[in-house]
Simulated assay, not measured.
Amino acid sequence: MYKHITGIIITIAVMAAAIPSHTYAERITNKEEVNEFLQNAFQAQVSLSEEERSMKEVNELLDPYFAEEPKAEFLNENLVSENGKYFTLGSDAAAFYIPFFTYSDHTKVVKEGNKVYVYEYFPENHDGPVAYEGHFEGLLLAEQEGEFKVAKFLSENIPEKILKKAESNEEAAKRSSFKTPENPIWINKPSYQFGFLLNPFDALFRSGSMLLTDKKQGKIALFEHQELNGQLASN
């Protein structure tokens, strides 16, 4: 029995060694992972204002998210000390915090080699406690010892090639989303089935006539007719 258990343990160990390990750096190339990482990094910064901590505790909070240079910039600008303890003061416009990204389609995430650029354009705002002109805010994430960390606060200094790459990616996504399927399964559409039940002869006649027309024009006409039927069925 013990031999069987030992054999199972060895087998599991061998399988675990054979499976390639996925570091956090690999997972963070996904936009959702980037968003989650930055939200956690921002929360780590904000939590420094919630209670007093030792310098060791401050570093333990920030080290998983920030490289030494941006961490030092943030601490030099925001950290205060009292009775040997450290904390930050709240502010509506404190420097070297993770920007208030919307984490929507407006937040751009662009991978370039082993670096990830994250930026967003903020339209001008003259309401509320903080007024500002339209501007970019961005961050650079870079891999360090197998993990991505915030390597630089970019402010408005987003490289031109990154802006163009983001635009190119968006255009490619738009083009692919408007492609017509080679073999559209139109006969299974609810609007077609509904029309067939009401008037099978008319439905067959219309579908047959469209198949006999020019291929491209037939697809367009069929799509327009389906859309109209869908609108009628929903009313």
Rank of each mutant, 00 (worst) to 15 (best):
E82Y: 06
H225I: 05
F42H: 14
Y65A: 02
S234M: 14
E156L: 05
Q39V: 01
G146A: 13
L139R: 07
F136P: 13
E120H: 04
Q193D: 02
R206P: 03
N183Y: 10
F201V: 08
Q231W: 03
E124G: 06
S49Q: 15
K108N: 12
T88W: 13
A25D: 10
K161N: 09
I12W: 08
N78H: 08
G134R: 02
P129F: 14
K174M: 15
E50M: 15
I8A: 10
S176Q: 12
I8L: 09
F42L: 15
S176I: 15
F178R: 07
H126W: 11
I19K: 05
N114K: 03
I8E: 12
P129K: 14
G134C: 00
V80F: 12
D92E: 13
S21C: 02
I28V: 05
H225K: 11
F37D: 03
T102F: 04
N40W: 00
D127P: 08
K115R: 13
Q39I: 09
E26D: 08
I220Q: 07
T29H: 06
Q231N: 08
Y119D: 14
K219N: 09
F101R: 07
N30G: 11
L48T: 10
E51M: 15
E167C: 11
L228D: 13
E69G: 01
Y86F: 07
S155A: 11
L228F: 09
E224R: 02
K31Q: 14
S21A: 12
K56S: 14
H126G: 07
I28G: 07
D214M: 00
A151W: 01
G128R: 07
A17L: 13
I8Y: 10
K179H: 05
F205P: 00
I8G: 09
N76P: 14
H4I: 13
P64Y: 06
E57Y: 06
E133L: 08
S47C: 15
E171P: 08
G146H: 12
T29Y: 02
L163G: 02
K71C: 07
K215G: 00
G138D: 07
K31F: 13
P70W: 00
L222F: 08
A13D: 01
K219E: 08
G208N: 05
I187V: 04
E171C: 01
G218E: 01
Y65C: 03
F101I: 04
A172N: 11
P20S: 00
E156S: 14
A131V: 13
N59Y: 02
L141K: 09
G218P: 03
E171A: 12
K56C: 14
E182H: 04
G84F: 04
V46M: 15
P184V: 06
I9W: 05
R53C: 09
L61Y: 11
Q226T: 08
R175P: 01
E182I: 12
Y119V: 11
F101N: 02
P64I: 07
G113C: 07
K216I: 10
I9V: 11
A25N: 12
S47F: 15
L211H: 04
A18R: 01
M210S: 00
